[in-house]
């Protein structure tokens, strides 16, 4: 795995998640700003998927291949689904949904790194 991309996607997802929860706290619905932020996070995640495919095609492989693929798929599917579900409620709670989705993405990418290089656990 490319550590730089993983770190970048975790950082982006956390920043986006905090921004969403801040908007929830301020009683703001999901707007263009949050959608653009989610788009940036998704772009970094897609770059990570491409990088992972390149690395695997180059001969490296994950310590837990099945889990790695599942987490990789989950990392790019989570935000689109989260955006769709958040837009169903045009209130502060929509922003909350997107915030939870972003935090979930951060956890997924952390787990992605763990199943790529599992140190005995």
């Amino acid at each position: 795995m490319i550590d730089g991309l993983a770190a970048a996607s975790i950082a982006c997802a956390l920043v986006a998640g905090v921004a969403c929860l801040l908007q929830t706290w301020r009683d703001r619905a999901v707007g263009v700003g949050l959608l653009a932020t989610a788009g940036v996070v998704e772009a970094v995640l897609l770059a990570q998927v491409i990088a992972a495919i390149v690395v695997v095609a180059g001969g490296s492989h994950a310590d837990q291949p099945v889990n790695f693929v599942l987490y990789l798929v989950a990392s790019v599917v989570a935000l689109p689904v989260g955006v769709w579900w958040s837009l169903g409620d045009r209130s502060r709670w929509g922003s909350g949904v997107l915030g939870i989705a972003c935090l979930a993405v951060a956890i997924i990418v952390v787990r992605l790194g763990q199943v790529w290089e599992s140190t005995g656990g």
Partner: peptide, 22 residues
């Protein structure tokens, strides 16, 4: 049940559903 704060509840349940299933 899926509007207002319930929407967040459904989100967390969905995450656990997907995580636990896989």
């Amino acid at each position: 049940t899926a509007s207002g704060p319930g929407r967040i509840l459904v989100t967390v349940y969905a995450i656990f559903a997907v995580a636990a299933c896989s």
